[in-house]
Nucleic acid binder design. Sequence first.
DNA 1: CATGAATGAGCATTCATTCAT
DNA 2: GATGAATGAATGCTCATTCAT
Lengths: 185, 185, 185, 185
Amino acid sequence: MSKKEMIMEAALKLFNEFGFHGTPTSKIAKEAGVSNGTLFNYFSTKEDLINSLYLKELSGCKECIFKGFSEDLSVKEAVESLWTNAIRWSIKCPDMFKFREQFAHSPYINNINKEKTEELFRFAHGLIEKGIGEGIFKHKNTKLICHYMEGALIHTTKYILENKDENVDDLIKESFNMLWGGVGS
Amino acid sequence: MSKKEMIMEAALKLFNEFGFHGTPTSKIAKEAGVSNGTLFNYFSTKEDLINSLYLKELSGCKECIFKGFSEDLSVKEAVESLWTNAIRWSIKCPDMFKFREQFAHSPYINNINKEKTEELFRFAHGLIEKGIGEGIFKHKNTKLICHYMEGALIHTTKYILENKDENVDDLIKESFNMLWGGVGS
Amino acid sequence: MSKKEMIMEAALKLFNEFGFHGTPTSKIAKEAGVSNGTLFNYFSTKEDLINSLYLKELSGCKECIFKGFSEDLSVKEAVESLWTNAIRWSIKCPDMFKFREQFAHSPYINNINKEKTEELFRFAHGLIEKGIGEGIFKHKNTKLICHYMEGALIHTTKYILENKDENVDDLIKESFNMLWGGVGS
Amino acid sequence: MSKKEMIMEAALKLFNEFGFHGTPTSKIAKEAGVSNGTLFNYFSTKEDLINSLYLKELSGCKECIFKGFSEDLSVKEAVESLWTNAIRWSIKCPDMFKFREQFAHSPYINNINKEKTEELFRFAHGLIEKGIGEGIFKHKNTKLICHYMEGALIHTTKYILENKDENVDDLIKESFNMLWGGVGS
DNA sequence: CATGAATGAGCATTCATTCAT
DNA sequence: GATGAATGAATGCTCATTCAT
């Protein structure tokens, strides 16, 4: 593993454990087994490191979320695919999920990253508008549906992550039914 | 307003604007119009101040949420009351809502406060178990329903806070329908 | 002596001995007998400290240089007064003289300070122009005379500072004669 | 141009623009188009590089200053030659002039270089003593004359460098007259 | 109680220098 | 010789906290 990857891995672990503010760059370097200065050869600032982690997370997440997606899917199938893939990705990369939660509520998130995050949101938005057009949604407020869905998704994911002993497939299925029963028809 | 209240008010404002880490105690004191040392006469540490703010927020929130609640309400009525009151409270105290979001994702939250937060959760938990007992829920995983509901509630609230020009009553009604359509019957 | 003065005194001494770059703020604080943080209570940055020292120097210098000056003096008398006072001041405050030499050749000198320094220069400039108008100067290039005079003054001062055992009054007199013999008539 | 020369050229440029402290060796290497490590193949330390630049400057300067000098010249002619050649050299190599100003006021100047610089000073000293012996100087303090002259020379040069649009020959002539009018007879 | 000057541990970042390739 | 990644000591500055008045 390259030094850069070792630094990012160490940072991810420590940020999740102690928070951004509670993790000095010196500790990250030590955990990664490199010198303090080396960290700054790869990331110009601590903020740069944090944002790089986020971008890495985002690209991995997107790749996973759109897996198996096709224009041929019905809206319901597409939403279910989105819901399922998102949860599966978080189970695969729980550290990244936790990291993102911290990142999203930190001052480090900047406009560039907000914009990149919006892309995912816009995708969901488009799906729902399509569904509304087809008359398969009970409600018409696209944005409200999006936010409702996002919240439900994140907290459902948290629950599943904390209860991995339960049958994950069932939980995903069950939670999607809760969603669809409320918004779809 | 007492000095203590002035400090808490200033802290709430600044924490929401600049974050916990971005707000030195010196700035809080200045904003509150008291000396640097005075802050520490009322709060032993910065962490103590943050936790005190949270406890204040929690008690106000609980008071609001349980308003009009009675054992005589049906489960559906009780859940709707919970949902509606929670959103109404956030609209009344948006600073507190924002503060709690930051707090919940920070390292400041400690076990004592987690426990106190759980009380609210346990109340919802009890309600849902009662509903499951009555057979009015489609699903049986109480905790999953709780988490799903919590996420949906928080993000719905965020949406409403950012779109106050829309009809709040309608949004609350609509979002509750989404919830109930998915979980209830 | 106030803490602020103690810091400035220590800084002056160390800057002269080790240079700006060779003098960490921590050493200044230690030499002044205060904590590292205290230095930054009085000076927002190291640069601020350096500039404050310069401004202090400048005001002391000006006060000294204009002592005994009057509009009634002839140009020759005025220039001699300037020359003599400037050297006398440097003898009284040799640390400040040395400090200014370093400061003037450092990147710390900024436009504000350059402007303030110019005031002295403008005064000399005005004197010389007056003299040229009276026809008592051999040469007519005011600015050239100013620069020539400034250089001669500074280096003469350096020599006198390094040879305090010689008769200072004589050296001042002699050097002024060199100047006047060359430029005046 | 050899790598060593490229490094020295880059260093000269950057030192003049950003100062010694404001110019990391990495930037010098980049500007010179060589790798970071290569710089240290030619100069053991940054200080070594700075001193090497100075020595190069000094040898070029000396060569220029003694051009046309002969034992047959009268003292006045010799001093004028010195004065004129020194200014002409600075006009030809303004970067070197600027560099030397910074160098002379920095902690990098060491005893070896001070000694080498003294050679020039001793030459002037000898000339003036000869003149005093011949009775052609108004004053007898050789060292005072030397310092006075040095300061006048440097600052006159600065003026000329900043005002190249004026007639350089005239400025040199005029400034020498100021000098000689004051010290000679 | 109120003050605010003083403290000093702590941290992000820089940069001259080394050395394995 | 040339390279440039790696090093880690060094430093300016911050800020929660203390305490004498």
